[in-house]
Structure formats: structure tokens, C-alpha cells
Design a binder for these strands. Structure first.
Length: 120
DNA sequence: ACGTTGACGGATT
DNA sequence: TAATCCGCCAACG
């Protein structure tokens, strides 16, 4: 139901999620922060509802805890383990698999229409 | 237009 | 360690 992928906040969030490397994870808060909306972790959850082919399983709660319900939660864990993600009890071993901010930071526009220099 | 919801997070108790 | 509270803000009814 995400007709358009440009709801500003939405688009950025999804963009960041897509940047999480295989075998790594990021928290909702990390995503929101990297997308430019620090503190808007809940909106990340909303955005994921309309994922569509995004590596949604790589998004976990603070501390590496899986927040999805029973069924989906199990699926998420299995998918992550399938990528080589290691768990410590009920949570992802963040020490090892947490994505770095640099990796999440959105890349500059591929084909910027206008001035796309200013990178800093 | 308005109130409620939500795959949250962090601080407080 | 767990329960509760509050801030965040787009989507829904």
C-alpha cells in the first residue's frame, strides 16, 4: 500500500534499511537517526509495514531484541540466523552484528539532477 | 479535522 | 530486572 515511495520521511527510512549489509542488523532508533529523524523510531516500524522486498529482518529493537510477534518473530530470527547472525539468548549479539552509522548513512544521490557536490 | 494506533527508545521508578 | 511514562509522527477510521 505504499503507492509512492516518496513520503519524505518514509523514503529516507526505507533507503536506510536497504543499506543494512547482509549479516548485520540495525535498531529502529539507528534507522531513524541515520535517516535524519532522531527519535522517530516508531515511524520506522510503520515504514517497514510497507517494506516490499526490503531486508526488514535486519531491523531489531534496542539491544538486539526482536520485537515482532510470535510467528513473524520466529521467521525473523530464522532469516537472520540464515545470514550468519549470532544470537545471545533472545537477542542479537549486537557487539558483533550491529551496523555502523557510516554504513547506514544514505549515499549521495546516484544521478543528482542539480548540484550534487557539497558532500560533507 | 481529530483521536487512536504502532514491529520504538530511553529515562524514571 | 521489570513495569510505567512520555516523546516521536505518519497512517487510519
Amino acid at each position: 500500500m505504499p503507492p509512492t515511495i516518496n513520503s519524505g520521511m518514509f523514503a529516507r527510512i526505507l533507503r536506510v534499511v536497504q543499506r543494512i549489509p547482509r549479516g548485520k542488523v540495525a535498531t529502529y532508533g539507528d534507522i531513524a537517526y541515520a535517516a535524519g529523524y532522531p527519535g522517530a523510531a516508531r515511524q520506522v516500524a510503520w515504514a517497514l509495514h510497507s517494506s516490499r522486498g526490503l531486508p526488514w529482518q535486519r531491523v531489531v529493537g534496542a539491544g538486539g531484541k526482536i520485537l515482532l510477534g510470535s510467528e513473524a518473530g520466529v521467521t525473523q530470527r530464522l532469516r537472520l540466523e540464515g545470514e550468519g547472525v549470532h544470537f545471545l539468548g533472545l537477542r542479537v549479539d549486537m557487539k558483533q552484528h550491529r551496523c555502523t552509522f557510516a554504513q547506514l548513512r544514505p549515499k549521495p544521490r546516484p544521478s543528482s539532477s542539480k548540484k550534487a557536490k557539497r558532500r560533507r
